[in-house]
């Protein structure tokens, strides 16, 4: 297979960027999208040119590192899949492919296709935890948790922190990401004691990081590689309202 690639190149955050066009041949349908980019980079470095900088690690859809916008869609055409789980058989031979980084104020571009997602960590540091020092825990079976409740918690805990939800949202909102953690912990009895403070602190940090507000369009859910439901956002909003209404801090 062969393709015409338009790849976003930008040497650093302070430089301006542009699409660079390259032809690539000898691609097979079994290659993953990132393996196709590996071929591009081997050609570039072998010829003494700087490679295209893009992030990746596990290459099996779980670490949340890969983060490309392919033909305008975060993580590309395959539903419920990350960039690294996207295969070249999803593209028509001979077609053009546009590859660019996530675009969001809170995710500044570092270089080429890499953005800085540290805002996500800071939101988690603000409140995405249960305060339980090591060694202080009661027996794991001391509090039974209904299977359905545990499954529901797991559904939202499945977030891989890739940021596609932000990239897809016209307001670059981080609501799906924050709500997934708020819902995970609010669903479980272990998360209950801190639920009010947690939702307030995480939302305050999300705002401080310059993420936009939720547009209610659901684009986030459509691109989420873990199929996290927008219903968690409604749950977060309820948690928030309840916390301001009853906050005693």
């Amino acid at each position: 297979m062969k393709f015409t690639l338009h790849i976003w190149r930008q040497p650093s955050n302070s430089d301006s960027g542009n699409f660079e066009t390259r032809e690539i041949d000898g691609i097979t349908p079994e290659m993953s999208f990132l393996e196709m980019l590996d071929q591009v980079n081997m050609q570039l470095t072998g010829g003494g040119e700087p490679e295209v900088a893009f992030e990746h690690d596990c290459r099996e859809g779980i670490c949340g590192t890969c983060s490309l916008v392919i033909n305008g869609v975060p993580h590309g055409p395959e539903w419920g899949a990350t960039t690294c789980q996207t295969y070249m058989r999803s593209f028509e031979d001979g077609s053009e492919i546009w590859i660019e980084p996530y675009r969001a104020k809170a995710f500044p571009i570092t270089k080429d296709l890499i953005v800085d997602r540290s805002a996500f960590d800071r939101i988690q540091q603000a409140g995405g935890f249960v305060s339980a020092n090591t060694g202080s825990a009661p027996d794991a079976n001391a509090i039974p948790i209904a299977k359905a409740v545990a499954e529901q918690a797991m559904d939202s805990a499945a977030c891989i922190g890739c940021g596609a939800c932000v990239a897809a949202c016209s307001n670059a909102s981080a609501s799906l990401f924050v709500a997934a953690k708020v819902t995970h912990l609010a669903t479980l009895p272990q998360g209950d004691p801190e639920r009010r403070a947690r939702v307030q602190k995480m939302i305050a940090q999300m705002d401080a990081e310059m993420f936009g507000s939720c547009s209610n369009h659901g684009e986030c859910e459509a691109v989420c590689p873990k199929n996290i439901s927008v219903s968690v956002i409604a749950q977060m909003n309820r948690e928030y309202l309840r916390s301001v209404a009853t906050s005693d801090t």
Binding site: F129, V130, A132, T134, G135, S136, A137, P138, D139, A140, P144, I145, A146, K147, A150, E151, A153, M154, A157, H184, L185, L188, Q190, G191
Partner: peptide
Amino acid sequence: DQCVAQGVPFAR
């Protein structure tokens, strides 16, 4: 015990 206290959603 520690993981459950942190909210790790193990299968039940």
